[in-house]
Amino acid sequence: MAKKNTAQAPLTPAVLHILLALSTGERHGYGIMKQVQADSQGKAKMGPGTLYGSMGRMMEAGLIRESDKRIDPEMDDERRIYYELTGAGRAALESELKRYRGVVAVAEGRLVHGH
């Protein structure tokens, strides 16, 4: 996940989870973490080191961007930075999901036909 674009390259699990978490709207760091946990039914556990390291590389690649600082009414009165998907981020997510569907189709075909 290096430079711009990435639509063709397979994404790392952390990047895929972050893109998925942001696909339904903008979130702050803790919000992304909780969403990743919910999406993976608790199987993926991501700490701040992995989360922000991945987000730094994703921002450089143009997949996500800072949205705004604002108050989360459910948390407290501290201002948080929110992140959102860019067009390239949404395209990368769709491309990755398409790739996954292809892999799953091949795997299911092999399981059914046994070759």
Binding site: H28, G29, Y30, M33, M75, E78, I81
Partner: peptide
Amino acid sequence: EGMAQTFHDL
């Protein structure tokens, strides 16, 4: 700042 905030939230 965001990392410190996230740790605080956790």
